[in-house]
Design a protein around this nucleic acid. Structure first.
Ligand SMILES: [Mn+2]
Ligand SMILES: [Mn+2]
Ligand SMILES: [Zn+2]
Ligand SMILES: [Zn+2]
Lengths: 146, 146
DNA sequence: GTGCCTCTTTAGAACTATTCTAAATCTTGA
DNA sequence: TCAAGATTTAGAATAGTTCTAAAGAGGCAC
């Protein structure tokens, strides 16, 4: 394991948290780590399960609080792809989500430049974009045909 | 009130329902009507409240069932803009949603042609796009500054 | 270092949105 | 006319999230 990279991540976490008025805590570190480690799109419940492995005493409410702090600090993104549990995304680049309705998998795809230049309601002050494509992933599309 | 238009809507409803394997029912009509009438983005609960005015005996579960049937028949769209209740949209044109995080208002904007030509994961079979822009509407952006 | 204020965590209760269940009712079509 | 299946209903159950109150920890003034 690369200790340099580890320290760099921790500095980044501490900085981003504190500029948003949050303190560094081991729980926030832990939640951040599990999301950054397996770069998928887990629900709060999945984050809770993973975080418990490193920190068995962590509570449900804390996971929600930490996720909220991380989102507000611009360290992770919140995505609402469908009815039900919110998911969290470690990728802070501009990207869109391809969501397979059969297996639930989520794929990140970078967006073309100027993609978000679109007509706006007069005076609207845009903060962020959520672009999702729903359908079937290659595997599931194959299975359906047979 | 224009009876011609009313009958046309009802024919459209019946046709779309039946091609998806659903029957026409007064409850489905009622739910469809309240969504088409005030062309906003209500939650299931709001639809329930409005539908009760015309049909006081309608139940909660039926509103959910009807909304589901209408979505599956391609008569309305389901949109998940944030954590919490799902909203429903009467506009079946390709459009995106501008969502004000302060007052909750939702604005439809038509999408430019070819907007949805974007890089795809290999083999992905896209069904539909959900494009949302989160921020502040003109009114709320004004209030914040003052 | 001590005290004080605020932030954070915790367990569990509460709440909100949605789905499920089982019985009654309605529709369709043999 | 009757059986089979679809639909509606009230209320129970479930899932996901937020709230609450008490305990713990960190930072700062003195
Ligand atoms: Mn992502
Ligand atoms: Mn809309
Ligand atoms: Zn799939
Ligand atoms: Zn607003």
């Amino acid at each position: 394991m690369n200790l340099g990279a580890h320290n760099k991540n921790e500095r980044h976490l501490t900085e981003k948290l504190s500029t948003s008025g949050f303190r560094f805590t081991p729980q926030r570190q832990s939640v951040y780590d599990v999301i950054m480690h397996k770069r998928d799109h887990p629900t709060a419940e999945e984050v809770f399960i993973r975080a418990k492995k490193q920190m068995p005493e962590i509570s449900h409410a804390t996971v929600y609080n930490c996720l909220d702090a991380l989102v507000k600090s611009g360290l992770i993104r919140q995505v609402q792809l469908e009815r039900g549990a919110t998911r969290f995304c470690p990728n802070m680049e501009e990207h869109c989500h391809y969501h397979c309705g059969a297996c639930g998998k989520v794929f990140d795809m970078a967006l073309p430049k100027n993609f978000t230049d679109m007509p706006q309601p007069k005076g609207f002050k845009a903060d962020h974009y959520d672009i999702a494509v729903h359908g079937l992933c290659a595997d599931c599309a194959g299975k359906r045909k047979n």
